[in-house]
Structures are given as structure tokens and as C-alpha cells.
Design a protein around this nucleic acid. Structure first.
Length: 713
DNA sequence: GCCCTGCCTCTTTTT
DNA sequence: GAGGCAGGGC
């Protein structure tokens, strides 16, 4: 094994180094965008291993996405090629780690499961729920929103009174569903964490207790994940968590802005910061600072770079055409397509760009994940394997037999009868599924599996999609056999693990190219952009009503701002914003005030701009700052309170300064204004935000100063 | 099964 | 501010 090179540490800046070397039992690192968060995390792991002699098996590294987990693992393996992958089994998403614990250590029998349980996707749980409603004649309101209703009902735990808001049987359904899932040996993503938390609560000898728990993007944790974390920490694990409160964009999913501070308080954690951003040019960074909420220092090291370009477009189509030309130009000048990305607020906005870009011959990729479940034939095959591996999974058996497209096309009623009464001889396919365990180990290759189930017959050879379907199934089986070989377990256990991981990771079987680094422009929502970086970023539709999206409350509004912050901080060298004068239904015409919040000297647009921030906006910001301080003072220690107070003072001072400079710009008592449409007029009334002027031929008009195109003469 | 009223939600998405 | 659903009255 290679020795951990001390020089590794010297490559880090002092802040990063401090975080890696920190010895406190709990440490929370407040990492700014682009400050080398992942580098610190990986360095920490290596440092613990090589210097502190903590085995990799004694660490649990938790991430939210598979992508992040894969990145950490591959970077560790790149630094240490001889490291056996099995040692990193505790490195993964919260869910995959919970799955690992449940399978290997925790007494799942206590909850009515066997060690061979399978993971199912939310879709299947919904089917199960609908079935139970029918069976037990439950009264459930808003069935079309059952998925959401189940989610919120399942989140109600313990002694809270379980009375439905709509006075229906939703809680009975939750209970029945839990029993049904246990009896069919199935767990959903939710159950994985829930059950792991339940079993980890009791002291059990043979259960996992890692020495170190390391968490990436801790600000995204929901309550289940926080409990999971707590279970591990209360067993004596040290905690090292990295995150950025300015990047909380998933609170609608259960994470909360103040989690960072709650954690710090709860574990009396030491708080460190990584302030230096290496990613973006200083202009981009300065613009980003306008959207920071907690006054944390965000320091850059790069040159000013290009100005931020703001473009006014008639509509999305015009914008797409303009962008196509712009992207081609940048490409000619040497920026690879893969270094450019277009962000938008809503999934539905991607269509226009896809159309125009494919017409213009620009290679692009839309970040939308397709999984096995999205392809009917693969869905059917997975369920065929499910029932073959788990006879308790009767719904899968029925699904396979009663499918209209594939299999024997038996009526649902008959299928139910065959599967539930386990009638041999009634269906060839059913007998094959039942007999699968016996011959499973003897199957030579994926071809043998294909012919065992006589799939050339059951995949409906007369259908138009037969060839496509057959290839997809072959590919699925191929991937499965490769996976099983890697696992070094017996065939049946390996296949079970494969099916679990395919629901957990969403195998992208259909993807033609395996190479991730295709040179193509990436199209995605602002949410999907988190964690990525590009040389050149285009954010489109920066209209009020879209960015920020019209929100219900103040919290939503703040989240919109963080979302925009995440978007602009993805850009390394170029940031270009556009807005529409004629947007669709949802948005309002004209630029979003987010554009006005960026100092004009950073911008390069085709028109002159008014004051960067309206007084109203500044006032609102200070107000927000004030309420934030109040909220946090409940949780935070005195010291940080004072810090906040100081930053508030600074904000106030800068507000006063800006007010003063605004006032200086204001005219002497003459008060005449020019308007592009109404010509020159005389100011009748004026206060901090509003202005009333009389124009010859038009009468008196009222304007909001910051948004009107008035000019003092 | 139709019409009316009231109520609810809508967007973002990972596992 | 629309559109979908539940439930009551008919």
C-alpha cells in the first residue's frame, strides 16, 4: 500500500487543511460553492485511513445521490488502485447504506421480513395500495393524489394522533400497506431508512457501529436521514459533515434551511468554513454574492473575466435560435460543447431548445433519467424475475401473466387464481417461474436464461417493437450476469442484489453510449444543475413568474433565490441571462428583478439600466436579514449572534450608503422627467418608491421608480 | 349520471 | 386563477 503523501495536504489551502486535520468528535464544515468540498471530504477519508489508522470499513460515507457516491469512490480508487472495492461498502447513498445494514447486520425478521427482501419502486407500492383499497373497501379521498397522500401519511409517526384530515381511511391503508409489504418481503425507499432507523434504535450486539460518519451535502437531509445519522452518532461515531446552507433547494422535499444550525447545536459541533471559491470569475462571483442570504464570506481568487451578458428576447423560440448561434460561435472559438449548459426553471421549457438545437445540428443532452421501469418490456422482465426469486410476490406473478403485451395474456381474474392457489399445469410461464430456483444455478449464460423462459415466444414476436424489446432484454440480462459475476455470491443471491440495486440506482439500460463524457451541450432545470460546473452557462427565462417562480410564501421566495444562486455559481467563465418580452402564460413580460439585483457595472446588455436594486428590494432584504437573525438566535450561540449582528450592521450601513447615493442621483427641485413613450413631463408627487408625473397630452401617470424607464432631466 | 359547490393543488426531483 | 375531484342533491 502506498503511503499517504504529506504533500497531499500541502495542496490544500489553510481552511481545507484545518478541516481535514480537525480532531473534534463532531465537525461541520460550511463549504461555499466551488470551495473544494469533495476534495476535503476525500482528503479527510484518506487522512483518517493513512494517518489515523481508521480502517475504511470503519467509516460510513453518506451522500444523497449515486452520482456523488460514485465520484467519491472513484476518486479514492484512482488515488489507491489496489484498494479492494469491498472495503468501501459503507460508502454510498443514505438508502444504499441502509439497505446494506438491513441485509448484512440488522434483524429484519423482527419486522416480519426475511433477509432476501427486495426493493420496489414507488410505482409498485401505489399498485399495492390501490389493490388494498379495493380488497378492504377502504374509503380514500383524492385517490388521484394517492402517492402524495401516502407519503405525508407515512411521515406521521408514533403517538401523533392518526386522524385523517379528510376523515377517510388513509391511516388504515398505511397500516395494511406496511403489513402487506412485509408479508410480500418488499421494501420501498422510504422503508429502507424507516426500518433501518427502527432497528438501529435498539441496542443490538451485531449491528454496525462505524467509528466515523462522513456526510456530503448535509444541508439536504430530510428528517428520516437525520434520524439515521443520529442513530450512528449516538453509537459513538465521530461526525464530519460538509454542506452549504446557501444551496438548500430541496426544502419542498423535507430538508430545511436551518438544518445546518440545528446539527451544530445538537452535536456541539465545531464549525469550520471553506470560504474560497476557485471556480468562477470574480464578476460572476460578485453577482452571486447579491443572492447570498446569510452574509457568509464568499471569496474568489480569479480575474474579473467576462461581463455577464443579459439578452432580451421576444420569446423562448427566439431565445433558442439566438442561443444556437451563440453556442456555435463559442464552439468555433474553442469552447467544447460539453462545457456549455442551458438552465431553465421548468422541465417543460426544455422542448423548445431540443427542437431548435436538433434542427441546428448542435449535439445536446437533456438530463432526464430513464430507468428500467420506464420501458414496458423491461418492467415486465424485472417482475418476471421478481416472482421467480420470491414466490411471496404474488402481485408480480399476476402482473406477468395478465400483461396484455407480453407473456400469455391470461385474464387478470384467471391469473390471480393461478398465482394465489399456486396451480401447476395451468400456465407454462407460471410453472417456469415456480421452477426457476431449481435450475437457476445451472444456467450457463444470459442466453440460457432467455431461452429458459422461452422469451422469443413471450415477448410478442408479432409486435412492431419486438426487435427493440428483444435487444433491450438481452442487454438487461447481460448487465445482470456481469453484475452477478462481480458479486461473487451464488446466482440467486446475486440476482436478488441486482434487482435491488436496479431499483435503487435506476439502471440506465437503454443508453447507447456508456461514455459519460460525451461532447454535448447539457440542457437541464436549475435544480438538476446542482453540483455541476460549466465554462459557460446560459440561464433562460429570467422573467418574474418563472425565475423566481410565483411562490406561495416567503420561504418559497427565499428558496427561489438560492436556486438562482446555485444556477449562476455553476458558471466558470461566462454567464449569460435572457428574459422574454412575450413569455407564455405563467411568466410576466420583462426582466425579473433578479437581473436588477445584479450591479449594472457587471452587466453587458443592449440597453441602459436603472439603479441596480430598488429601495423596496433593499428594504425587504434588510427585513429578511433581521428575521433570520431572530430565528437563528434561538438556536445559535451568542458569538455567532454577534457575528450576525455585525453583518446586519454592515448591511444597514450599505443600505444607507446606497440610499445616499440614490438620493444624490435624484434631481434638484426642478423635477422634470423623460419617458420613452410619453415624452417629457413634470413631477407632481414623489416618494421613495413611487413617482407621479404629468405629461402633455397624456395626463398624470404613476410609476414605480425602480421599474419604470424614467429618466431625470 | 349530471350539475353545483367547496376544496385542494399546482413547480422543482432523489432514492 | 384554473382545473380536477369529492360529495350532495336531484
Amino acid at each position: 500500500m502506498e503511503l499517504y503523501n504529506e504533500k497531499e495536504l500541502d495542496r490544500l489551502n489553510p481552511y481545507q487543511k484545518e478541516a481535514v486535520l480537525d480532531e473534534s468528535p463532531a465537525c461541520i464544515v460550511n463549504a461555499n460553492v466551488g470551495s473544494g468540498k469533495t476534495t476535503v471530504l476525500i482528503s479527510k477519508v484518506q487522512y483518517l485511513h493513512h494517518v489515523k489508522k481508521v480502517n475504511y470499513e470503519e467509516m460510513t460515507v453518506l451522500t444523497f445521490t449515486n452520482k456523488a457516491a460514485d465520484e467519491i469512490k472513484s476518486r479514492l480508487l484512482a488515488a489507491e488502485p489496489e484498494l479492494p472495492v469491498e472495503k468501501l461498502r459503507g460508502f454510498g447513498t443514505f438508502h444504499s447504506t441502509a439497505l446494506y445494514y438491513l441485509r448484512e447486520y440488522l434483524p429484519v425478521e423482527k419486522l416480519g421480513y426475511t433477509r432476501d427482501f427486495l426493493v420496489i419502486d414507488p410505482e409498485e407500492e401505489l399498485e399495492l395500495a390501490l389493490d388494498l383499497i379495493r380488497q378492504h373497501k377502504l374509503k380514500i379521498k383524492y385517490k388521484n393524489r394517492l402517492k402524495k397522500r401516502l407519503e405525508s401519511a407515512m411521515a406521521v409517526r408514533g403517538e401523533e394522533k392518526k386522524v385523517s384530515k379528510y376523515q377517510d381511511d388513509i391511516f388504515d391503508l398505511v397500516r395494511l400497506l406496511r403489513e402487506e409489504k412485509a408479508s410480500q418481503d418488499k421494501m420501498t425507499f422510504f422503508d429502507l431508512l424507516e426500518n433501518a432507523n427502527l432497528l438501529l434504535r435498539e441496542e443490538i450486539g451485531n449491528s454496525p457501529s462505524p467509528k466515523w460518519v462522513i456526510v456530503d451535502e448535509v444541508q439536504d437531509s430530510d428528517s428520516q436521514q437525520l434520524v439515521f445519522l443520529d442513530r450512528l452518532v449516538s453509537r459513538g461515531a465521530n461526525l464530519f459533515a460538509v454542506g452549504d446552507p446557501n444551496q438548500v433547494i430541496y426544502s419542498w422535499r423535507g430538508s430545511a434551511f436551518q438544518i445546518f444550525y440545528t446539527l451544530k447545536h445538537k452535536y456541539r459541533a465545531k464549525e469550520l468554513t471553506l470560504p474560497i471559491n476557485y471556480r468562477s470569475s470574480s464578476s460572476i462571483l460578485e453577482a452571486a454574492r447579491c443572492f447570498l442570504q446569510n452574509g457568509s464570506p464568499l471569496t474568489g481568487v480569479r480575474e474579473p473575466g467576462n461581463k455577464i451578458i443579459v439578452k432580451r428576447q421576444y420569446d423562448a423560440f427566439q431565445d433558442a435560435c439566438y442561443l444556437a448561434g451563440r453556442i456555435k460561435k463559442l464552439h468555433r472559438e474553442g469552447t467544447p460543447y460539453g462545457e456549455m449548459a442551458v438552465f431553465y426553471r421548468l422541465q417543460s421549457q426544455s422542448g423548445m431548445f431540443e427542437d431548435v438545437f436538433s434542427r441546428e445540428g448542435i449535439p445536446f443532452e437533456v438530463s432526464l433519467k430513464r430507468t428500467v421501469g420506464d420501458v414496458p418490456v423491461l418492467r415486465w422482465c424485472i417482475r418476471l424475475l421478481r416472482f421467480s426469486l420470491n414466490k411471496k410476490d404474488t402481485p408480480s406473478g399476476i402482473y406477468v401473466l395478465a400483461s396484455r403485451e407480453y407473456g400469455e395474456g391470461i385474464s387478470e381474474k384467471k391469473a390471480k387464481e393461478i398465482v394465489c392457489n399456486s396451480k401447476p399445469g395451468a400456465s407454462l410461464l407460471f410453472d417456469k417461474m415456480c421452477g426457476f430456483s431449481r435450475i437457476c444455478e445451472e444456467l450457463g449464460d444470459e442466453e440460457a436464461l432467455f431461452s429458459y423462459f422461452e422469451l422469443e415466444r413471450y415477448l410478442n414476436p408479432v409486435s412492431a417493437s419486438y426487435m427493440e424489446d428483444r435487444d433491450a432484454v438481452h442487454r438487461l440480462f447481460q448487465i445482470m450476469f456481469d453484475y452477478v459475476k462481480e458479486q461473487q455470491e451464488n446466482r440467486e443471491a446475486g440476482m436478488r442484489a441486482f434487482i435491488n440495486s436496479s431499483s435503487l440506482y435506476g439502471l440506465d439500460v437503454l443508453r447507447e453510449e456508456i461514455s459519460e463524457e460525451k461532447d454535448s451541450v447539457k440542457l437541464m432545470t436549475l435544480h438538476a444543475s446542482k453540483g455541476l460546473e460549466f465554462s459557460c452557462v446560459f440561464i433562460t427565462g429570467v422573467n418574474y413568474g418563472l425565475i423566481p417562480l410565483k411562490t406561495r410564501d416567503m420561504d418559497g421566495e427565499e428558496e427561489e433565490r438560492r436556486l438562482f444562486f446555485v444556477g449562476i455559481t455553476r458558471a466558470k467563465d461566462r454567464l449569460e441571462l435572457s428574459y422574454y418580452t412575450n413569455p407564455g402564460e405563467r411568466a410576466m413580460p420583462g426582466e425579473s428583478r433578479y437581473i436588477r439585483m445584479i450591479p449594472p457595472r457587471l452587466l453587458e446588455g443592449e440597453e441602459e439600466r436603472g439603479p441596480a436594486v430598488s429601495l423596496q428590494e433593499l428594504k425587504r432584504q434588510v427585513q429578511e436579514q433581521r428575521t433570520q437573525v431572530q430565528e437563528r438566535s434561538l438556536q445559535e450561540q451568542k458569538r455567532s449572534l454577534q457575528e450576525q449582528e455585525r453583518s446586519l450592521q454592515e448591511q444597514k450601513r450599505s443600505l444607507q450608503e446606497q440610499k445616499r447615493s440614490l438620493r444624490e442621483q435624484e434631481p434638484a427641485p426642478t423635477k422634470r422627467v423623460r419617458h420613452p413613450r410619453y415624452g417629457t413631463g413634470v413631477v407632481v408627487r414623489e416618494d421613495e418608491t413611487m413617482l407621479e408625473a404629468e405629461f402633455e397630452g397624456y395626463g398624470t401617470k404613476e410609476f414605480i421608480k425602480a421599474f419604470s424607464e424614467l429618466e431625470y432631466i
